[in-house]
Amino acid sequence: MKIVVCVKQIPDPASPYQLDPESYFVVRPNDQVLDDTDRYGVEVALQLADELGDDASVTLLSMSPGGSQQGIRQALAMGADGAILIEDETLRGADALTTSQVLAAAATRAEADLVIAGTESTDGYTGVVPQQVAELMGVPALTFARKVEHVDGKIRIERQTQAGYDVVEGALPAVLSVTSGVVEPRYPTFKGIMQAKSKPVETLTAADLGVTPDVRQKIVSVEAVEGRQAGDIIEDDGEGYLRIIEKLEEVKVV
């Protein structure tokens, strides 16, 4: 089984994001990191591959207009076999649908049996890419999975719902989106980090995949929102709870 895991490199969430003043695109520094939510998809893929044995492979798939591969190496160090990177300046600022067209074409080209993704990225969070990829590939989508099993050649999941969960099963090939509660992602070992440096990374362009980026939306303005002001921030001296009670009295809760 060929498992393809969609991963995204994003600016380090620990530092504030910047928007380019002219294009309004997120400024993407050269040292982007692996989106933390993607580690869950990688882990699910590695566990499925372990269960399936030698016939299974795990390939990372990522669209990254810039040249940095740091985030991809992080995911390779977890144990993926290789990666496909679509590096193309014409994809800078691509919308979710263009991204999905690129990912679907690359996954189809790689003859993926199972495409795994997080439910949404941390930086853009449109939250529709897995579904778009499934539609473009003409395959079922198993989404919002909090538990994943491989049963008799099918994928069975617990799908998160407002009321609880549904047990849903789908035939392969399929797209699977996982929540960040699904598994505990492994940390790369030293050996994994060393091996990641020599793993195969194939680079492609949008044209290689027959995708022409289309402009279907245009940012017309970006402005700062008048945020709420922080009030009293005090160090607890053992009587912090009394300040809370005062506040509760002030807003007439007690």
């Binding site: 529709v128 890419v129 579904q131 778009q132 990829v133 473009l136 998160q160 939306q217």
Partner: peptide
Amino acid sequence: TGNLDRDVAGRLSARLGKPVLAN
């Protein structure tokens, strides 16, 4: 923003070739 909302909006967007603006 419900799960089925997102599933259907995403698939429909790809089917029609039209973008989704979220949030």
